[in-house]
Design a protein around this nucleic acid. Sequence first.
DNA 1: CGCGGGGTTGAAAATGATCAAACGGCGTGG
DNA 2: CCACGCCGTTTGATCATTTTCAACCCCGCG
Lengths: 239, 239
Amino acid sequence: MNFIPKATECGAGLCPACAVCALTGCAFHNLSGAEAHQRGLRLDRGDRLDCRGRGACLQFWVIVEGTAATCTAFEDGRRQILGLEGPGDVICALMAGTGTQNWLEALSDCRICELDLTPQAKALRHDADFLAATFAVAHRRLAAAQAHISTLGRLDSRERVLLFLAQMADRAGRGLVTLHMSREDIADYLGLNAETVSRILSRIKKSGLVKFLSPTEYVVPDMAEIARRLPVPVAEAVP
Amino acid sequence: MNFIPKATECGAGLCPACAVCALTGCAFHNLSGAEAHQRGLRLDRGDRLDCRGRGACLQFWVIVEGTAATCTAFEDGRRQILGLEGPGDVICALMAGTGTQNWLEALSDCRICELDLTPQAKALRHDADFLAATFAVAHRRLAAAQAHISTLGRLDSRERVLLFLAQMADRAGRGLVTLHMSREDIADYLGLNAETVSRILSRIKKSGLVKFLSPTEYVVPDMAEIARRLPVPVAEAVP
DNA sequence: CGCGGGGTTGAAAATGATCAAACGGCGTGG
DNA sequence: CCACGCCGTTTGATCATTTTCAACCCCGCG
């Protein structure tokens, strides 16, 4: 049940590829009994996890494996995917307003590590390493959220889908990309509807910018060509 | 030049209405020489302030007076307003990807306090109060950004404008509301264009939901009536 | 073999953008 | 004081994009 890699497994105490160790490295090293409050979860595709934090932001969910989405829905059922989460991503309590639901939804089968640090609240409130790590989590999510605002506000449907495909390819590290999302999931992420996504995907396919092997698998022959058709960089430059 | 109210001016050390004291209260109390790195700025309507932080997020801009907007623009000039900032709001380094500009723009004349804490970087990295305060800043911004994603992704133009009017009214504390934004500003915030905003404003005016005294001043006779037409709560419930 | 859940495609309708014209307030200069 | 011109706003006509509704296809599964 212990999905969290030990800090010792991660070389210099911090695992470069995932934030898990960054958290354990800071929050767990000087805490006794912390193990008791971490829980391994398995979600099947479509499963939802209510992760409203109680009060302060001291609960975390770390994606260990799979792809998940942070979602909201209005009273009338309209759904919006706020962000996509992959291995290493850390979700802290989603902020749900009254009347707006918030949940984490597995887009593919997922392994997730849940950390409840509320018992350690008092100590953590003064733990600089812990605070720095949670700040980094929030900051990274904020950057992603702001980029997504621009996407939804100022890109048309073709640009949104193209950017989406490019980003997923970038994240998958070139080669064959497998989407773990239905057309409707993509639509809810991009603020479109499923038919529009399908239509645009067909157009992109015809254009040759992306080669589809199946509805959920594709290859990008020339990333630069896609980048040339977008007014935004595909990947955020990491300074 | 010292725009920052002293913590002592704020009752219990924290000013309830603004985050300024929350920051000074934590970051400045135990720092000597901090005064030297704070700078009062005046921006006229339309002025832009490049606030990309150098490296770590240790520079802050606090709105003391006026309304400003955090903006991005694509290479081709399309502008998107990411968020609206009023007195007390704290902006930390905006994350600008290469190819995407980021700036803070005064929508009305503003007084802003700039804090540069990079000289204190070493000490602050271990200052729990400071870290907690910056986390709160990022967290609050994240909540706002996520709410805006839903707005842009899933509300139609009429709903967006209505929500905007209601939120501005809520923020202004009822009574007469004065918009410090042009139609184009509103459009760039809501992911629409200026003509569409104007048209919808006219429709809303005709419907009687909002009474306009001038193009930039209005009153909301019945907030509940507006809320009834929106699938989202107007104000986030503060827990 | 039939059923059901994506996915794709088409036609029609709605929504929002674009282009263009006219309005109104306001400051400047005659 | 008035005329002029500028800028932001409003409004109309038209165009493009996106949604909606519907049909159909494909494929896996009972």
